[in-house]
């Protein structure tokens, strides 16, 4: 690797090892609407970042860009040392399955598959389905007794825990949550957050989580506030 001897590149490599996400002037326009104004953001590896802001402020847009679901209109975006702008659609899909676990607000699960099978779906896209491992993952999120139930037969909190199991099954480096507790009552919220914290301690993934809830944001290391696509404030918890 000749690049190792090039001082500039080496510096970038080193920085990358620290920052799992790096954006430079990251912008996303929807026609005339500018959902995300040029944004410079660094997220160190292992950090738990909370993203707050009122509705329509561009939080989901940021999540989708970072998770490789969407493409920026301008700027640069590096996730885990990969330049996402250089990847094509299938390359992004491959990036997602290896690198990112995503949890949504509406617990998007495949309705006709059981809890275990929903987890196995992620395994299938990643490599090969392995039922024992999927079952173990569900047991870890406390759903050992709900393996064979369809999403329709599970409560909101339980569904969200299936989503968490699915998100972590491929050992991602980055866990994204787009208001994962938005639809949950207080008890379930606490339960889910506890679970995430526990898992992070074991698996050491980076968390980026959008939330409306100040208390939920409090679980993180750092909180950023977006307003109209602009980063307006940053707050470090510890």
């Amino acid at each position: 690797m000749s690049s190792a001897f090039c001082p500039v590149k080496r510096e970038r490599l080193l920085r990358m090892a620290e920052n799992i996400i790096e954006t430079n002037g990251l912008t996303r326009n929807y026609g005339d609407i500018c959902a995300l104004k040029p944004l410079d953001l660094q997220i160190p590896e292992g950090e738990w970042l909370s993203v707050m802001g009122h509705s329509g402020s561009g939080k989901s847009t940021l999540m989708n860009l970072v998770g490789g679901l969407d493409r920026p209109s301008a700027g640069s975006l590096q996730v885990g040392g990969k330049d996402l702008l250089a990847l094509n659609e299938d390359g992004l899909a491959r990036f997602r399955r290896e690198f990112v676990g995503i949890i949504f607000q509406q617990h998007h699960l495949v309705p006709y598959l059981t809890a275990v099978e929903n987890v196995m779906m992620a395994q299938y896209f990643h490599s090969v389905p392995d039922e024992a491992e999927a079952r173990h993952a569900l047991e870890r999120v406390g759903l050992g007794h709900r393996l064979k139930n369809r999403p329709g037969e599970l409560s909101g909190g339980e569904q969200q825990r299936v989503c968490i199991a699915r998100a972590i099954i491929n050992s991602p480096k980055l866990l994204l949550g787009d208001e994962p507790t938005g639809n949950l009552d207080h008890k379930s919220t606490v339960m889910v957050m506890e679970l995430l914290k526990e898992l992070r301690a074991e698996e050491r993934f980076t968390v980026v989580m959008v939330t409306h809830n100040q208390e939920v944001a409090g679980w993180g290391d750092r909180t950023i506030y977006l307003d109209d696509g602009v980063l307006v404030r940053e707050e470090r918890m510890r």
Partner: peptide, 14 residues
């Protein structure tokens, strides 16, 4: 040790 890694190896072999 890691499940994902294990599956990946098997997949590559297949």
């Amino acid at each position: 040790r890691q499940g994902a890694q294990r599956r990946k190896l098997i997949f590559a072999a297949i």
